[in-house]
Amino acid sequence: MSDSHDTFPPMIPKRGRKKKHHAVHEEVHEGEGPWIVSYADMMTLLFCFFVIMTSFANFDPVVVAKKSAAIADHFAPDSVMDDLKAYQTLGLDIGGHPNLKGVARSQLKDGTLEIVFSSSLMFAMGEVDISPEFMKSLDVLVGLIKNKNPNYRIIVEGHTDNAPISPKHPYRSNWELSSARSASVVNRFLYYGFKPTQLVSVGFGDSRPIAVDHDKNGEALPENQALNRRVVIKVLKPLKSDKMKNLGIDTYFDDSELVK
């Protein structure tokens, strides 16, 4: 019995198996790395997104302009960033000028700077000539744009409400009225030295309202109609050439920028 016992040493765990188990454990642990990093990146981006949305919740044009500039510094290419900074500076100049404060509303939209005026302030009822009282404000705006960059391209849009035109009115439709008003504004840019190839005049009539003109009962809503009677001036970046493109649908310049 003693010989038999001496022949077979006591059983001990095989190190190979333990090492194999340990190796498997290490493989699982090492495999967790890539997806954890991707998940963390995604959560960080989501957090930044909601922080930005929260910061914009209380809208203040000056504050939003500054925040937009800071974001552009990190995410936009140099050329795009330069354009945005120029637009933002121009927008701040417009909003802070005493002749334009409370009269013009500017915003960045689709890579352009939009300045919105109420037609009720710019034109007398049914008229297409800019009122003498408003002319100074418009001239100040044209001067600010020209001082920033005289090569900017300008698109002027005329909009009306859907009130019908009187049969005795010299213009037969809201299309004609809005077109004549936008042309009057374009003429001020021409007067101050902008080239014709930089300018476009567009009349939309009542086809693009921003508020309903009438309630469910068909009654006119004067406040909404006043919002729809507006002139929109769009400031676009300069072109490398002065060539105009043959007009397609909403295409005005040879870089195929669209008016939306």
Rank of each mutant, 00 (worst) to 15 (best):
N151H: 13
K136C: 10
E114C: 11
Q107V: 15
S179W: 04
L121F: 15
G143C: 09
I145G: 09
Q107N: 15
G143K: 01
G205Q: 02
S137F: 14
G96E: 13
D215Y: 03
A183L: 08
I130K: 06
N187Q: 11
G111D: 09
S106W: 10
G218H: 10
A220S: 11
F123N: 09
T112P: 07
P167M: 05
D129P: 02
R172K: 03
V140S: 06
N99W: 03
G111A: 13
K148V: 04
A163I: 08
S131M: 11
G95F: 03
S178N: 07
F117L: 14
K168W: 03
V140L: 01
P98G: 02
R208P: 05
N187D: 02
E223H: 12
N174D: 06
F189T: 04
A163K: 06
K146D: 06
F134R: 04
R153K: 13
K136E: 14
S201Y: 08
F117N: 10
Y152W: 15
N174C: 03
V142E: 11
V156W: 06
Q225Y: 07
D139R: 11
K101M: 14
F134V: 00
D129G: 11
Q225M: 15
A220T: 13
V156D: 07
Q107A: 15
S201A: 14
M125Y: 15
S178A: 14
Y152M: 12
L221R: 10
D139P: 08
K195Q: 08
K136P: 07
S131D: 13
F204S: 13
Q225G: 11
D215L: 10
